[in-house]
Simulated scan of single mutants.
Amino acid sequence: MDNKGTDTSESDIESLSSIFKKGLESYNNITNSDQPTNSPDMQISIKRTMKTFEDATRLVSLAGIFSNNESIDEVSTSDLQYFLLPALLGSLNLKLTSGERKDIVDVAEIYFKDFLLRCNAYNLSNYQDKKTDEKLNKTELEQLLTAVNTRANKIQRFKEQKELKSKLGDLKKNIENEHVDEEIKREYFITMIKLFIHEAIEELNSIDMEKPILEHMDNMKKDDKIQPKRALPPPLRPIIITKDEVQKAVFGAGYPSLPTMTVNEFYDKRVAEGIFPDPNKKKTVPTSLQEAALAGMSLNQDEKEEELKDKLIEEDDEENIARMRAKDEFKDDHRRGWGNRMNRS
């Protein structure tokens, strides 16, 4: 084939060949690697290989290697491999994990369609870009026939893919020979192109199924931006006095660092401090007006009340002493008149 690029030298063509070979080796290493695709090293390799193929694509464009008015027989054997550039870039794009998935899928779709349409132009494929509205306009019978044909086509493509892979493996062994025949070399590249045609169609079918999901997710994100979720208030962390051990376990479990007590624990603590009377000690005489009334004492006899107080003091009743001490401590901490500031700060 004559060189169509007027500004491209032989050194540029040699450079293109070496660049593409380097990129293809890297691509094969990526696809055959056991390393996770989302690993940092793998993502670096994918982006580096994409850069290599992008450079090769620019050189192909400068050289004007492909033309719309020629057949596949007019393309030189060494140039056949450059048919694969958009398919390789589309495949690598789908392996990217950084950035918006919708953008990645859109770019990959452009690459695969560009590859298939160029193959159509050279009669290597008969790919048809199906429109969604065409499917909607079909009758039920036509849709059923389409489904049957689609299934049959999938089975046929699977068989062809299997045959092409086997054939490509055999040809690859011969292509590594330094003195390989030109026809074998040509057949190797065309077989590789046909195999990528099947893979590109499969990827486009997968993209057709993925895009509605991505659009739905994108709409959900937009709705979230319009109506942002209200931030939940921080959880309350109260100091509580629970009724029993069960509630203590329930409420205390959520706040292990907070002092949580049952009612009984609280009362026992106050008894130990001498503030509350000990219920286990036997009372010798009533210690309050209410208890005196319950004991049958007359509440109207002030003298008897005073005698009762004096008697408690003389007998050094422990409960009475504790009560009086608590009262004195209260008076010391709350002196008379402290609560009345006469509206002064």
Rank of each mutant, 00 (worst) to 15 (best):
Ser298Met: 07
Ile72Ala: 02
Met209Leu: 13
Ile110Phe: 07
Pro212Ser: 04
Thr6Val: 14
Asp181Cys: 05
Ile46Ser: 04
His179Trp: 12
Leu299Pro: 07
Glu70Asn: 14
Leu141Tyr: 06
Leu204Lys: 01
Ala249Asn: 11
Lys95Ser: 01
Glu176His: 12
Thr97Met: 01
Leu312Val: 06
Ile313Phe: 10
Pro212Cys: 03
Glu176Cys: 04
Tyr82Gly: 01
Ile19His: 01
Phe115Ser: 02
Lys283Ile: 13
Glu303Gly: 09
Thr52Ile: 11
Ala200Arg: 01
Asp103Phe: 01
Lys222Thr: 10
Pro212His: 00
Ile197Tyr: 02
Glu74Ala: 08
Ile197Asp: 05
Thr37Met: 07
Ser166Cys: 02
Asn68Leu: 09
Lys135Asn: 11
Leu258Lys: 13
Pro259Ala: 05
Gly254Asp: 10
Lys248Pro: 08
Met1Trp: 09
Leu89Arg: 03
Asp181Thr: 09
Gln161Ala: 08
Asp328Met: 14
Thr287Glu: 13
Tyr27Gln: 00
Glu273Gly: 11
Ile213Ser: 03
Thr37Trp: 05
Ile65Asn: 05
Leu204His: 04
Arg323Ile: 09
Leu94Ser: 00
Ile44Ala: 10
Thr8Arg: 06
Glu74Arg: 11
Asp133Glu: 15
Gly23Glu: 01
Thr242Tyr: 04
Lys165Asn: 09
Val246Tyr: 11
Asn264Ser: 13
Leu124Tyr: 04
Ile19Leu: 13
Leu96Arg: 02
Ala295Leu: 06
Glu265Gln: 15
Arg186Leu: 07
Lys95Val: 00
Asn320His: 14
Leu168Ser: 00
Asn300Ala: 11
Phe83Lys: 00
Asp310Ile: 08
Leu258Tyr: 13
Lys327Glu: 12
Val263Cys: 06
Asp34Phe: 10
Ile240Asn: 04
Met50Ile: 03
Arg335Asp: 04
Asn32Gly: 11
Leu136Met: 10
Lys185His: 08
Lys130Ala: 14
Glu187Val: 05
Asp34Pro: 01
Lys243Tyr: 09
